[in-house]
Amino acid sequence: MGWVDWLVQWWDGVELWLVQLPVAVQFPVVMIVVLPLCLGVARLIDRVADWGANNPASIGSPEPEPESEKVAA
């Protein structure tokens, strides 16, 4: 659990550093870091969803098609 504590302390330090910056500096920093990160996560989620939708193992047994009604002439 040591690396989790390290990560939490590191994140707290980054957060404190960012909060203490002037807003004119915060905005570009957030846009340069957060925007590409969010875009990357969205693309990853999209690829995983596409893979799951196209994966033959995720498809259950096919349901039989209902028989069409025959009309007696």
Rank of each mutant, 00 (worst) to 15 (best):
G2I: 13
G2M: 13
V4S: 10
V4I: 12
D5W: 10
D5C: 01
D5P: 08
D5Y: 00
W6P: 00
L7C: 06
L7T: 06
V8H: 04
V8P: 06
Q9S: 01
Q9N: 08
D12V: 10
D12C: 05
G13E: 01
G13L: 03
V14W: 04
V14S: 00
V14R: 10
E15G: 11
E15V: 02
L16R: 09
L16H: 10
L16T: 15
W17D: 09
L18V: 05
V19G: 03
L21E: 00
L21W: 01
P22V: 06
P22R: 03
P22S: 08
V23C: 02
A24N: 11
A24H: 14
V25W: 12
V25A: 12
Q26R: 04
Q26V: 04
Q26Y: 01
Q26S: 07
F27C: 13
P28H: 03
P28Q: 10
V29F: 04
V30T: 07
M31R: 14
M31Y: 06
I32P: 03
V34T: 07
V34A: 14
L35I: 02
L35R: 02
C38R: 15
C38P: 00
L39C: 15
G40T: 00
V41K: 12
V41I: 15
A42G: 09
A42S: 11
R43S: 15
L44M: 13
D46W: 09
R47K: 13
A49E: 03
D50L: 15
D50N: 08
D50S: 08
W51L: 14
W51V: 07
W51P: 00
G52S: 15
N54M: 05
N55H: 10
N55M: 01
P56Q: 04
S58H: 09
S58T: 11
S58M: 14
S58W: 07
S58C: 14
I59F: 15
S61A: 09
S61V: 14
P62I: 09
P64M: 03
E65R: 12
P66H: 12
E67L: 06
S68P: 07
E69I: 05
E69Y: 07
A72E: 10
A72Y: 09
A72D: 04
A73E: 01
A73S: 15
